[in-house]
């Protein structure tokens, strides 16, 4: 585990203080819901600022150093007491791409933090090539489209053209809070219709997600063990 990393948050079963909205007021992305007097975090929106942990009077939140977090649906990303978001193996994707996966990355409003973490996957520290996973320059060579950023309006056509240039079978990975939910830019100059039509097979939360979040997520999806 990366020491000091503000990664996977866990929430306790402790009831909220009566009438308290401290975490809701602080959360920059409305990632927290209070249901039946207990807190839940939607990791699809969370930007891991840690403010909820700092302000909660009953210490309901704790950010751990665990980078292993992800989901195959948006619902998987909601953290409640005693649950953690995990990526289950996808039988079909595992059969097709389990031994070789080529990725095309498109940043559509990404701030270059997600992009740098994805680039880091190819450095000597993370070295995903050893798993048969590789970045490719041409969409023609790609099996998966890894999207970062909230999907700006100005990248709408470029994202579609990249996807259409990729041969079947193919799938989408949403990397980071912006790509998953719009993140901090939900009210921004964005157009998320593409993700409505092409539901990602894998969601990797974080702002930005740690490279190990990607490694764990993709290996779990493909059943590599």
């Amino acid at each position: 585990m990366p020491a000091g990393y503000r990664g996977l948050p866990v929430v306790t079963d402790v009831p909220c203080a009566a009438g308290c909205t401290a975490c809701l007021d602080e959360c920059p992305t409305e990632a927290i819901v209070i249901a039946e007097g207990r807190v839940q975090i939607d990791l699809g929106r969370c930007v891991y600022c840690g403010r909820c942990e700092e302000v909660c009077p009953v210490h309901a939140f704790k950010f751990t150093a665990d980078p292993k977090q992800g989901g195959r649906s948006l619902g998987d990303l909601v953290v409640t007491a005693g649950t953690r978001p995990t990526v289950a193996r996808d039988v079909d994707l595992a059969r097709i791409f389990g031994r070789s996966l080529k990725l095309r990355q498109v940043s559509a409003g990404g701030c270059n933090a997600c992009e740098l973490e994805l680039s880091a996957l190819a450095n000597v520290n993370f070295d995903v090539q050893r798993y048969g996973i590789e970045w490719v320059a041409s969409p023609r060579h790609a099996d998966a489209l890894v999207l970062t950023g909230p999907l700006t309006e100005h990248m709408r056509d470029a994202v579609r053209l990249t996807w259409e240039a990729m041969p079947d079978p193919k799938f989408v990975v949403a990397f980071g809070a912006c790509a998953i939910s719009g993140g901090l830019y939900r009210e921004g100059h964005i157009d998320r219709a593409f993700l409505g039509e092409h539901i990602p097979a894998l969601y990797l939360p974080g702002c930005p997600p740690h490279p190990l979040t990607f490694v764990h997520g993709i290996l779990d999806l493909l059943g590599v063990r």
């Binding site: 940043s107 559509a108 409003g109 990404g110 950023g149 909230p150 700006t152 309006e153 100005h154 990248m155 470029a158 901090l184 830019y185 009210e187 921004g188 100059h189 964005i190």
Partner: peptide
């Protein structure tokens, strides 16, 4: 301009 998200407007809001 492809990365334009509307930062200044969002900050003002």
């Amino acid at each position: 301009g492809y990365q334009h998200r509307g930062v200044e407007r969002l900050l003002l809001a």
